[in-house]
Structure formats: structure tokens, C-alpha cells
């Protein structure tokens, strides 16, 4: 009896150690077997991820990329996604421990995060953000230098705090901060006059300005003190899955470049070989990713091309972040969005 228990114990231990390794090795087939994509998102960020009161469903820029991914894998983007709301502090643990398949939660691409240290790997950037400052026009602050010795409200636990310290050290300015755990509290304090400036990514500044007591008195300083390329993340050591995520993002870039939209993708006519390969009519590219041949078509059918995703979530009716002339424009218009060769 004793020995049986011992053997059982050893077996259980081995199973416990080996199973997670097996489970995390091939996310793509895991997701396909499960029939459900588990997507880590932000549930509190305007434009990027929130619960829509009208539909009771998740909505936003990042959420649309979850949908595109689900559609590319052959799942139903309306029903087969489990959105897991995550806080900034939880997101990497959730990814490392396979609680989610992919993290699409306005996460900045940095060396540390991309390295062994976090065990994460970044798919192409979907939104180039950058940290800036929101100040009151009446305070007559025109540039970063005018913030010498000023009190700055900032949210903790993100890259924002570190960037702020770096920028002030570089410019030789004295930094005084008020650190908050919550965006609402930090911005509220600034809006009530408790700080001279509020710092965050410019996309967020744009959305926060709309809830200020006096939006017309607020202005965003011209300086951008950081690079904040935001994009999806997967786990290191699962290249097959990473390729799927990466090329789904590229598919939205490529579709915009070639004028393929949500409305016309199913009936798109072209003699261009790379478009034919994109539409899955030749080339067998889907099989190379382990997907159906119509994977890109499905992704575009679900959410549209990059331009459509951007307009829907960040365009004039939403956050109203200007796209023209920014890094988020297509490479044809001087931006950074560029899909590699479709062959």
C-alpha cells in the first residue's frame, strides 16, 4: 500500500511538472482544440478596451485585434473569445502562466519586456503612442523647460513614471511628482489644481481632456518624451503561435495598403499576385501558418483593415486622435505601418 502511494505521488509530481510544459508548447492547437481564444485586454481604457453599455460586450481598438485573431484561426469572433480584463500589474504574470493566449492590452514594447526576463515576445506595433504632458494654458507653460520644479501627477506601475524621471534628468530639471495608483485620481488631482501638469501617453491625454472641468484651458505640450509602441504579446518559445499573431496584424496593414475593406474583402477582384495570395486563392500561405487558406479574409471580414479599425475606435467619433502625419499612418503616407512581402 505504501509503495503504491509513493508511486502515485511520483506520477502526480511528474504530471504536475510536465503538463504545463506540454500545455504551453503549442498555443495554436490549444486554442483550436478549445474552440475559444483567451485574450487579455484592458477593460477600462477609452478607445482601446472597455465594456459597451449598449451591447454589454467588449469594444475598442485592442479588442478588435482579438477579434481579428480569433477570425484568422477559424473561430467565430462574436462568440469564441474569452476576454480577460487585466490590470497593469497582472498582465505579464497572466501571460507567463498561460492564463491567456495573447496579451493585447496597450502594452509598450521595451527591451526588458521582450527579453528572457519577462518571457514575452512582441508582435508588430499596432499603435505608436508617446508620453506627453497636459498643462493649463492659463499657467503659461509652453515647453518642458517651463516645468522645472513643477508638481507633476503620474500613475504608478507603468513605464510612465520611469520616462518622466529620465526626461527630467536629461534636461537637468528638478522633478516633483505626486504618484497615484489610479488614472482617475491622478487626473482628478491635476484637474482640481493639485498638480501643474499631468503626464501620460498622448492617446490617454486626448481622452482625459474630454472629461476635464474646463477642456478649453488644457493643452498638450509639443514634446514627446518617450517611445510607446503598443502591440500584442505572446509567450517566448512558441514561434508558431507568434507567427499567427504577427501576420494577423500584418494582414490588417496589407489590406489597407491594397484597398481591401471589410465590405469588399469577400468579393475583391484583382490580378495582383500578392493580393491573390492574401485572399487565399493561390500560394498556400495559410497552410504555412497552420491556418485555413481564407484566414486573412476572415480577419478582415471580422474587423476591417487597419484604417477601418483606427477610424472606428480612435477616429473623430471616438478619441479623435489625428492619424494623418503621425507614425500611425501607412508607410505610403509617411507613417510606420508596413507589411512585409505577401509570398
Amino acid at each position: 500500500m505504501r509503495s503504491i502511494l509513493k508511486v502515485l505521488g511520483v506520477v502526480l509530481l511528474v504530471v504536475a511538472v510536465v503538463l504545463p510544459l506540454i500545455a504551453s508548447a503549442d498555443t495554436l492547437s490549444d486554442v483550436q482544440t478549445r474552440g475559444k481564444l483567451i485574450c487579455g485586454v484592458n477593460s477600462t481604457l477609452p478607445g482601446f478596451g472597455f465594456l459597451d453599455s449598449a451591447t454589454g460586450q467588449f469594444s475598442g481598438f485592442d479588442v478588435d485585434y482579438c477579434k481579428a485573431l480569433a477570425a484568422a484561426i477559424g473561430l467565430d469572433p462574436g462568440n469564441d473569445i474569452d476576454f480577460v480584463p487585466l490590470t497593469a500589474g497582472e498582465r505579464f504574470t497572466a501571460l507567463q502562466t498561460s492564463q491567456i493566449d495573447v496579451l493585447i492590452r496597450n502594452t509598450t514594447w521595451t527591451l526588458t519586456r521582450d527579453s528572457q526576463a519577462l518571457g514575452a515576445i512582441f508582435a508588430p506595433t499596432t499603435f505608436y503612442d508617446g508620453q506627453g504632458f497636459l498643462v493649463r494654458k492659463s499657467d503659461n507653460i509652453k515647453s518642458l523647460k517651463d516645468l522645472n520644479g513643477a508638481t507633476i501627477c503620474v500613475t504608478s506601475g507603468t513605464t510612465t513614471e520611469g520616462n518622466l524621471a529620465d526626461a527630467f534628468r536629461e534636461a537637468g530639471l528638478t522633478l516633483k511628482t505626486k504618484v497615484f495608483a489610479k488614472t482617475e485620481a491622478a487626473f482628478g488631482t491635476f484637474d482640481d489644481g493639485g498638480c501643474d501638469a499631468y503626464t501620460s501617453d498622448k492617446s490617454q491625454l486626448a481622452s482625459l481632456r474630454t472629461i476635464s472641468k474646463d477642456p478649453s484651458n488644457l493643452t498638450i505640450l509639443p514634446e514627446t518624451i518617450s517611445k510607446e509602441p503598443l502591440g500584442p504579446l505572446t509567450r517566448q518559445g512558441d514561434d508558431k503561435w507568434f507567427d499567427v499573431v504577427k501576420w494577423t496584424v500584418f494582414a490588417t496593414f496589407f489590406a489597407e495598403e491594397k484597398g481591401i475593406t471589410q465590405a469588399n474583402v469577400s468579393s475583391f477582384q484583382s490580378d495582383n499576385p500578392s493580393i491573390l495570395r492574401f485572399l487565399g486563392k493561390e500560394g498556400g500561405l495559410g497552410a504555412k501558418l497552420g491556418l485555413n487558406e481564407d484566414w486573412a479574409v476572415k480577419a478582415i471580414e471580422a474587423v476591417g483593415n487597419y484604417g477601418e479599425i483606427y477610424t472606428r475606435n480612435l477616429g473623430p467619433n471616438g478619441l479623435a486622435i489625428p492619424r494623418a502625419g503621425s507614425l500611425n499612418a501607412s508607410f505610403k503616407n509617411g507613417g510606420l505601418l508596413y507589411a512585409p512581402a505577401w509570398r
Binding site: 484592458n42 477593460s43 477600462t44 481604457l45 477609452p46 478607445g47 478596451g49 472597455f50 465594456l51 459597451d52 453599455s53 480584463p85 482617475e184 482628478g188 481622452s207 482625459l208 474630454t210 472629461i211 471616438g318 478619441l319
Partner: peptide
Amino acid sequence: GMVDSVLGNLQWRGTI
């Protein structure tokens, strides 16, 4: 948590 999520909707910003 749901309150935070509702506040994430641009339509309801500032109704904290």
C-alpha cells in the same frame, strides 16, 4: 470593477 469599466466608455467619462 464594473464601474471602472463603465468609466472606460468615452460616453460616460467623468461620471465617477
